[in-house]
């Protein structure tokens, strides 16, 4: 599917990914700001403000990056997928496709699924990067922590495979889960205005709960020695 009709998948990456970039980047920046301020407040009690970089980077790459991105993704991209497919169904476009011998699973669902899986890890990585920059702005530029200690503590404590790669794996899993739920809810909704609105709501509720539940399972598997 991806190889026979790459154009459709590229369009969906654009629709799901590019349009979500602004909300992801802005949220990441503010989450980084808040992590910087709150982390400094706590670390300052123990006289180890230099560990702020480590705290910000670890919380973002391990947890907040993938999880918050997935929650925003469910709200921003998941709802639009559900509503789009639900309205296609309500407008009998999907039935029309079947009449024309076009397989709607291949034509409608598969490109959106692949687009979601491609977009989600990219968005999570951007979220983590912007968040770390946000923590740097608050910690180094505003509060005045030593920049060298900020980055060197971070590099000392963040492992590429244990932390960064596991975060990427998490974001891929969340991308699969949220996109699947969004497509499923759109596909099986009642073809009425009320049915579409209910399906959209369920996408956000079920998507968020599944992300949080999966996150617990994945964290338990990945980070418990």
């Amino acid at each position: 599917m991806l190889f026979r009709r790459p154009r459709l998948t590229v369009q969906q990456v654009h629709f799901i990914g590019n349009y979500s970039l602004v909300i992801i980047a802005v949220s990441g920046l503010f989450v980084g700001f808040v992590l910087g301020l709150q982390g400094y407040y706590t670390l300052n009690r123990y006289g180890s403000e230099e560990a702020l970089g480590l705290l910000v980077a670890l919380s973002l790459t391990r947890e907040l990056g993938p999880v918050v991105t997935a929650l925003l993704f469910a709200g921003r991209a998941g709802t639009s997928l559900t509503a789009e497919i639900g309205l296609m169904k309500a407008g009998e476009q999907i039935a029309a496709m079947e009449v024309m011998a076009v397989d709607p699973v291949r034509r409608v669902l598969a490109p959106r699924f692949l687009g979601g899986i491609i977009a989600m890890p990219v968005l999570a990585a951007v979220f983590s990067m912007v968040g770390i920059i946000g923590g740097w702005i608050v910690g180094v530029l505003l509060i005045g922590i030593d920049a060298g200690a900020f980055w060197s503590q971070m590099q000392d404590g963040v492992d590429v495979f244990d932390d960064v790669l596991n975060g990427v794996i998490k974001s891929v899993v969340f991308g699969v889960a949220v996109t699947l739920i969004a497509l499923f809810e759109g596909w099986q909704c009642k073809p009425t205005p009320e049915g579409v609105s209910r399906a959209t709501t369920r996408t956000v509720v079920a998507g968020s709960l599944v992300v949080l539940g999966l996150d617990f399972v994945l964290t338990a598997l990945m980070f418990s020695n």
Binding site: V10, Q11, V13, H14, G17, N18, L21, A57, T61, I118, A119, P121, V122, L123, A125, V126, S128, M129, I132, W151, M154, Q155, D156, V158, D159, V160, D163, V164, G167, V168
Partner: peptide
Amino acid sequence: IDVWVGLFVFLGIIALVFLALRAGNLSSF
């Protein structure tokens, strides 16, 4: 659209490289 999607994926690669080199310890690996 191709150009924008290319930029989007490129941004993701930049973010991963940033996480690996600037935040992580790949440079000391």
